[in-house]
Write a protein that binds this DNA or RNA. Structure first.
Lengths: 216, 216
DNA sequence: ACCTGAACACCGTTCAAGT
DNA sequence: ACCTGAACACCGTTCAAGT
């Protein structure tokens, strides 16, 4: 015996499982230790501190997005960007608790860097200058992660999330309840505002952004 | 005596001061109590729980944005949206610790509702249908808050933030250090990527989004 | 109505010690 | 190298009690 039963990867996986199961509040160094049947301080053998654990979990999930979607024929640059952004969205909605981790630390890991390179490549294929390509890449990241953050903020962060249909319906009900007599446009647009957390809104915003980016 | 020395407003102001001073980690119910020279549980007289305190702080700061910038001549709808978005950005960069609070709870307070109504109004003036106006309004919020979240994620969340110039310079230095031989586009675009956290990038992304929204 | 005292069930982290 | 025991300085929250 005395052979260790797990490694850093296992620690991170355990943390992700706890996050999925109980949401952001449930994740703690001590919870990971308990799940691995070890004392809390043993975790520090594998991870420098809590922030490093959070970062590793975020990196792990971000790596689940299909980066290969960003490569392809230059003429298809737009489809490549859109499909990749949807892949990021899909993966993060499967692990909603990760979104807050992703937004609360610098996005400078190897996976984030690779994503940046892939986006720069796609926008170069679109004929953009390096400067505009860099601005466009970040704008796409902002849209993607910003949308996810606002969407997930309305949930408890546990996986699996309620189906989009249910989340939209809950929003619609909330709007209906709030008699917005002083806000006529809100009252009129409430049914659409209920769908703000959905994939259609995500696609629409991204499409408008890309329209504006390549507009002559 | 026995006259209370403070009210809910004072509690929220104190929380904001602690947040500005020490960043997100410094804010706690107990820290607020200490600052008000009272036992921790006394705070619960004014605030239901920690989440309500966070929400009140977020609402307070969001209310500092100049909503009147959204009103004006219909022909100036675009300028109205841009100036308001910049106002939100300015206020939140003065209180960077608030950004994470804003992104981690539903945006359904009265201030957020009023902002939504103002945006719907501006996009109606732009000639958009109610449906597109609602989609456009959310896209603008996503850009604004998403940008802020990613920007602030690279700081310690304490006010005042380092000047933009310094934050950009720090990013540039970090990029220079990372020899990105395997990522040619990143290496080439590093000087622009360093400015991702700046106002120019914010304006550029918003402009492209609005271009795409009103494009014929 | 508003506050205190006391307690409970948690946190992250450090350090010395054991194997 | 990896883990434990013990401790420290924190959390949010509840409840009974006092004024």
């Amino acid at each position: 015996m005395s052979r260790r039963q797990f490694d850093r990867q296992h620690v991170v996986d355990t943390a992700l499982a706890i996050l999925d199961d109980g949401g952001p509040d449930a994740l703690s160094v001590r919870a990971v230790a308990t799940a691995l049947d070890v004392r809390p301080n043993a975790i520090y053998t594998y991870v420098e501190d809590r922030a490093a654990l959070d970062g590793a979990v975020a990196e792990r999930v971000l790596a689940m997005a299909d980066l290969s979607l960003l490569t392809g024929p230059p003429s298809q640059w737009r489809r490549r960007v859109e499909r990749f952004a949807l892949s990021v969205r899909e993966v993060l909605l499967l692990h909603p608790g990760v979104v807050s981790l992703l937004m609360s630390a610098p996005l400078n890991g190897p996976v984030a860097l690779s994503i940046g390179e892939g986006l720069l490549d796609a926008f170069a294929d679109a004929g953009l200058s390096p400067r505009d390509g860099a601005r466009a890449s970040y704008a796409v990241m902002v849209h993607t992660l910003g949308s996810l953050a606002l969407d997930v903020a309305e949930t408890d962060g546990r996986a699996p999330l309620d189906p989009e249909e249910d989340r939209v319906a809950a929003r619609a009900a909330a709007f209906a309840q709030a008699a917005a007599s002083a806000m006529p446009r809100t009252a009129a647009a409430a049914p659409i505002m209920a769908t703000w957390v959905g994939e259609t809104q995500f696609r629409w915003g991204l499409a408008r952004l890309l329209d504006g980016i390549v507009r002559p």
